[in-house]
Amino acid sequence: MSRAKKPPQSRKPSPASAAESEAPAEPVLSEETKHLLELVDQMLLIRAFEERCVELYSAGTIRGFIHLYIGEEAVAVGVNAALSPDDAVVSTYREHGHALARGVPVEAVMAEMYGKATGCSHGRGGSMHLFDVERRFYGGNAIVGGGLPIAAGLALADRMTGRNRVTCCFFGDGAVAEGEFHETANLAALWDLPLLLVCENNLYAMGTPLEREHAQTDLAMRAASYGMPAWAVDGMDAVAVERAARRAVDGILAGNGPHFLEMRTYRFRAHSMYDPDRYRDKAEVERWRERDPIPLLARRLPPGAADLEEMTKRATAVVDRAVAAAEAAPVEPVEDLYRFVSHEGS
């Protein structure tokens, strides 16, 4: 069953000035090229945001636990490209990229890093607890695998009410060793839940190599044992990610139950800003950097279609403005200390 998509809003072009009319015409880009450029833009924004978080954290400007998404951007943008605004997303503690790809405003995410009242969680959650109900982004979760049963509950609610939408749950390879994963996978398959399970397999969980944690390192095969379609995907290739996610979403909406995607990806930085990262070889990290998802996707574009340097500057400028807004934003007043502890409705 397919879902009707809202037509894009058209904007009336403003009258061109004499100077504009004499300027050379912009090259006509295909819809596919425009889409790829959008994916590159999103990945550059995530990368710029994460790199700024490194600077801010190192300077002591933002605090708490920070888990960076650098290197894994293709997963977030590829999967979100396949989702509808009506779908739900449940994330992990490494969720900055998921939130930005979902469309949570950069200013709201950065303000949350600062603990300001204008943050997407009013400054109460910080890096690991981003939340945006308007965009159906049901948060990061500091507990490994903690989002899985929440996602199953959202999917169950949709199934029971007959709503034609998908719940997507991101989690890492470490979560596959947790009971929550197996309980969720079993119930999702048993009840035919409209659930997309996206495992971001970056090979090390928190700091343990995959082969020292899992007797069966083919995580897609483990998920398939619960009777759901499951397969591995090159998580460094945004096009491959989007293609796989669209196939999975179509299968879920056709009534074929939950699907599992094992995204084989890699984080270029340590598990968190506290992690000394002594459990993996530096040469291995450099080998994976050769498959950086941003230039990898940019190479698919026609010659002259993208100026990565200029696109990077634009992304950096967006983050600069978000930082300025966060620094100027107020903290939550003390009088609101007990707000959001219990329901405030009538």
Rank of each mutant, 00 (worst) to 15 (best):
L197A: 10
E262N: 13
R314E: 13
D192A: 13
E213A: 15
D307G: 09
R321G: 00
A315V: 11
E183W: 10
A245T: 05
M236P: 14
G257W: 03
M221F: 11
L219N: 01
L193Y: 05
D307A: 03
V233T: 07
K313W: 01
G257T: 04
A240N: 07
V233R: 03
L197P: 00
L308P: 14
R264Q: 15
D277Y: 02
D320Q: 11
A232S: 15
L196D: 02
P293I: 00
R314W: 00
A230R: 03
W231P: 00
A240E: 08
L210E: 10
P276W: 09
G257A: 09
F260Y: 15
M311W: 10
W191Y: 14
A223N: 11
E310H: 12
R314I: 12
E200Y: 08
L196E: 03
D250R: 14
L219T: 04
E284G: 04
E211R: 14
V239C: 09
D218P: 13
A317Y: 05
P229G: 05
P302I: 09
L203R: 15
D250V: 06
G207A: 15
A317K: 15
T217Q: 08
R264A: 08
Y266Q: 06
L197C: 13
R291C: 14
A322D: 04
E200H: 09
N202A: 06
Q216M: 13
A220V: 12
E262K: 05
A232V: 06
E284Q: 14
F268P: 00
E286Y: 06
A315P: 15
R280K: 03
L301I: 10
Y266R: 09
R247W: 00
T208R: 06
Y204W: 15
L187E: 01
H182Q: 10
S225E: 05
L253E: 02
R287H: 12
G207W: 08
H271T: 05
M236A: 14
W288K: 11
V318K: 12
L197T: 06
E242R: 14
A315Q: 07
